[in-house]
Amino acid sequence: MTTKNAATGTATGPEPRSGGPERRLHAGAIRRMVRRFRRQRAPMVALGFLALLVLSVVAAPLISPYDPLEQHLAAVLQGPSAEYWFGTDELGRDLFSRVLDGGRVSLLGAVQALVVGLAIGLPLGLLAGYFSGVTDMIVMRFTDALMSFPPLVMMLAIVAALGPNLTNAMLALGVVFAPRFIRLVRGVVLALREEPYIEAARSIGVAAPSIIVRHIIPNALPPLIVQVSLATGFAILAEASLSFLGLGVQPPQASWGSMLSQGFSSLGQSPTMIVFPGVAIALTVLACNVVGDGLRESIGREVRSE
């Protein structure tokens, strides 16, 4: 809701000085972040691209010229044409429709992984930061250990144990994200804990959950949003990697990663098959990173960790 207000309530031009320090003081951290973000060109373009992408994969059934699973055996391994915009695969399936459909799988997978990562990372980070002491020590040692596993190798181990499918793969990715979120949230909490207003709240007897929800979480949000947007890019790459290895999405369903692996086996006959899913991954990840960098630039110095 805050975001919406900020979006409608701000001018696109430079911040008007006449607004006075008073108004700026009351604007939330998120509102200031949105305002600064909107002034940057590349991140705004990247955000626009991502919005368009999400819209088109959601509306895929309406946009797709063909059913992504429908086989046109008279037209296998074709290059791009007016009939099949991105060409066809070895079963004559329309690649444009499949890229759209695969995009939904890739993006949903990324969301799943982020939700898992946040569900583990947020509460543990809050706990470790707020209560410190033994809780903090135990949580942080586990975090250190988890972070020393090479990410993809850890995912392989989890997928091997649980069995190869997209949900397990994204669960594994969530476990990769968790320690990174724990560290971030803990760091913010540790810094905030010493703030006079938090101390004041504590000393007048405000309960810990209430302090966490009303003061700490809103302040932890901006850096968390930056990390989430950068993690989204990593999630899309990781999903693609696991699906490329055949450990993520299972046929006949496809994601961009599994389409690349399929294209790799017919690289000699139809080199165009790899181009579109590959470019789709690269552009999406690039857009996520650009948005993430833009968001990082937009965080006020007051909450920037460095």
């Binding site: 990697s241 490329f244 690349l260 690289l267 590959g278 991954i281 690269a282 990840v285 690039l286 650009v290």
Partner: peptide, 14 residues
């Protein structure tokens, strides 16, 4: 920036 975003196996195929 592109180097971070491109999956290395896609680059490999190219």
């Amino acid at each position: 920036s592109a180097g971070v975003a491109i999956p290395n196996y896609f680059l490999g195929m190219l």
